[in-house]
């Protein structure tokens, strides 16, 4: 934790200009990421997590988007960087793994060629060297009989294997930061576990930082150092993973945790739900975006948006006027007492 941050995001805003008006997809996000860290970004659809990760990558289209704030990645400013500048960073300093491996691979090119191509272009390797390195990479990501698979087309591989190939391409130029946007969402549980283990393993082997963007609290629970919880384009809670799970202060974090069914709970456990649905980003009023769904909301919440405040000195921040008391996480109750959720009938 002592190392200097490789990624500094300051007051980042991403606003889409659409036919309906201005859509503030990311509304003022600031955080830092250290070199050896795994950061989880959690949120539901529309929370801005995917837009945030794409903005960090510099992948937002040029037209109809307004960017504000700054993203410093290893000394490079990403916001408003030109495509040429970004191309020197992509692959070698930051790489991305997308949700759907089928659309991020070229279906008419063999997977070997796709990896070696990027090696030859980025690192100027010779054809033969690139092939050797590509096969090494395929082995690294756990693709069996890598030499034969080198000549396979993406459609000949299963979803899990494809995602491994995408990871191999992402790692081909030894990036310092790997951004994984829902890397396991379309995959089966057993394959999901394989891919997440692979990312964790590669992270320590290749010494890179990882940002894991997901909607699933289960994915980030045991595999991240810190977590950011997003709602309506803003960070509502951020901190070390244990703090967020056990000492969260923001009611939305609690609600997200409570509405996730758990294998350890007995069947027919009543889920505690959040009423309503995520807000319409076109029509955000001045207040806390979660207030309409929040059981603790007061007039202050509806009128004035809370800013992030410190919960402890360890970088645990939350944005709430009426924070939950410390240590009342449903996980604490579950661990100490009998499962308590069973009788939570409304």
């Amino acid at each position: 934790m002592s190392s200097s941050p490789i990624l500094v995001v300051k007051n980042l805003t991403t606003t889409f200009i659409t036919g309906r008006g201005r859509l503030p997809a990311v509304g003022g996000v600031s955080f830092e990421l250290n070199a050896d860290e795994t950061l989880g970004i959690v949120g539901e659809s529309g929370s801005g997590k995917t837009v945030l990760s794409r903005t960090i990558m510099g992948l937002q289209p040029r037209s109809n988007v307004e960017l504000g704030g700054s993203v410093q990645l290893l000394g490079h400013e990403i916001v408003h960087a030109s495509e040429d500048e970004l191309r020197t960073i992509w692959g070698t300093e930051v790489s991305m793994v997308f949700q759907d491996p089928m659309t991020s691979l070229n279906p008419v090119m063999t997977i070997g060629k796709q990896i070696s191509e990027s090696l030859r272009v980025r690192l100027g390797m010779s054809k033969a060297d690139a092939k050797v390195r590509a096969i090494d990479l395929l082995k690294l990501v756990g693709i069996p009989s890598a030499e034969e698979r080198y000549d396979a087309y993406p459609t000949q591989l299963s979803g899990g294997m494809r995602q491994r190939v995408v990871i191999a391409i992402a790692l081909s130029c030894s990036p310092q930061l790997l951004l994984a946007d829902e890397p396991t969402t379309g995959l089966d549980v057993t394959i999901q576990a394989q891919i997440l283990n692979l990312i964790e393993e590669l992270k320590s082997k290749e010494k890179m930082a990882v940002i894991l963007v997901t909607h699933d609290l289960g994915v980030v629970a045991t595999r991240t150092d810190r977590i950011i919880v997003m709602y309506a384009g803003r960070i509502v809670e951020m901190g070390r993973t244990r703090d967020v799970f056990f000492n969260h202060r923001m009611p939305y974090t609690r609600a997200l945790l409570e509405s996730t069914p758990k294998v350890s709970n007995p069947s027919h456990t009543r889920l505690i739900t959040i009423p309503g649905r995520p807000p319409d980003l076109y029509n955000l009023d001045g207040g806390c975006a979660f207030a309409p769904r929040c059981a603790y909301a007061t007039d202050q919440c509806r009128q004035e948006a809370p800013s992030l405040q410190e919960a402890n000195s360890d970088g645990h921040l939350f944005a709430c006027w009426n924070p939950l008391p410390v240590g009342t996480s449903p996980l604490n109750q579950q661990n100490s007492n009998e499962p308590n959720g069973a009788s939570n009938e409304q």
Partner: peptide
């Protein structure tokens, strides 16, 4: 019980 009843429905605009 009237749980989740009368949900506030935000309709997608007809674009």
């Amino acid at each position: 019980s009237t749980i989740e009843n009368n949900e506030v429905v935000v309709l997608k605009p007809e674009k």
